[in-house]
């Protein structure tokens, strides 16, 4: 075992895996990497098990030093990453030596980068997961974001085969994003006018975005009935509070809630949304469960084939 020494902790760098499942009924959030696409590829590039913990680095200003040689992979947002001052490309695995310094500077495209390490970051497992949920003080190191001076343990695996992801599989974090929506929950409580407005308008990402959800700004869409009995909330649920501005609920969402919901955004589209910065434009399009499930299964297949070859 060796350690990564945190020199600069950044805005919000947290340890994340695929999240905490099986404890929703005790009121625990799912948690987990917000951008599952980038997270899964980071582990695939190192032949890691799919649930190995990565560091999710929000917007950069993160610096750390490796105690011993091993292999890492970087995916997700381009935060102008350097090792010992030399620029390195995203979406590949690479070797690091003892004493190497990695730095994530500031966003060029996207918001969240994933730093994976061969074998995964070795932080304690709580309720079946290493994911940090700040609100619940669970996961990571003491349930908090990473801090200056902390050490993160890793296994020494310098001989992991190096790989690079073909550009056709690399998502583009473009400004305009269209999210596929499965109409469900209180969809029928919204008027035809509200539905039309919702699917034909452009929304912009507001300043109020975090791991719980993305609040969007645009034409108001109000449901006819505002008073609902709280019910279980699925990933990607589009919740509309009384101000009529939709919120797409992400990994750190609460388990139940009582605001009217339009339906759910596809999980892979939630990943792409989590890379969008305030001011970026977002649209919604009507989709169906079969289409979205097939896309998700194709994604899983691609990962399997990548690790098989």
């Amino acid at each position: 075992m060796a350690n990564l020494h945190i020199i600069k902790a950044g805005w919000q760098s947290t340890v994340q895996d695929l999240g905490r499942q099986g404890y929703f009924r005790s009121g625990l959030s799912e948690g987990g990497a917000l951008d599952e696409i980038a997270f899964r590829w980071a582990n695939a590039l190192l032949n890691n098990p799919a649930n190995s913990a990565c560091i999710e680095i929000l917007m950069g200003d993160f610096e750390a030093e490796f105690e011993q040689a091993t292999c890492i992979a970087i995916t997700g947002a381009d935060l102008n990453c350097t090792i010992n001052g030399k620029s390195i490309e995203n979406w590949q695995s690479l070797k690091v030596k003892a004493g190497d310094r990695i730095r994530f500077n500031s966003p060029i495209t996207g918001l969240r980068a994933y730093l994976a390490i061969a074998g995964g970051w070795q932080t304690p497992i709580q309720f079946g997961s290493r994911s940090t949920v700040l609100r619940e003080k669970l996961g990571g190191i003491d349930g908090e974001k990473l801090k200056i001076g902390q050490k993160l343990s890793y296994l020494v695996n310098p001989d992991t085969p190096l790989q690079k992801l073909d550009s056709q599989f690399i998502p583009k974090y473009t400004d305009e994003l269209t999210l596929k929506v499965l109409p469900s929950y209180q969809y029928d409580l919204f008027s035809e006018t509200a539905k039309r407005r919702f699917f034909t308008s452009e929304y912009s990402v507001s300043q109020r975005i975090d791991r719980m959800g993305y609040r969007l700004e645009g034409p108001e869409v109000m449901a006819d009935n505002q008073q609902l009995i709280s019910e279980g909330i699925s990933l990607g649920a589009i919740q509309v509070p009384p101000d009529g501005q939709p919120i797409v609920l992400l990994k750190d969402r609460q388990t139940i809630g009582g605001y009217p919901k339009f339906g759910c955004v596809a999980s892979l589209d939630c990943s792409l949304l989590s890379q969008q910065a305030p001011g970026n434009r977002v649209r919604f399009e009507l989709s169906d469960v079969a289409t979205v499930q097939i896309q998700r299964r194709l994604f899983e297949k691609r990962l399997q084939i990548f690790n098989y070859i």
Partner: peptide, 21 residues
């Protein structure tokens, strides 16, 4: 994957790689 019981509803979260809708 998990169940979320609430007042009048039960949400069933499942593994879409094992079964479909």
């Amino acid at each position: 994957i998990d169940l979320i019981p609430s007042y009048t509803t039960l949400l069933c979260v499942y593994d879409l790689n094992k079964v479909d809708d």
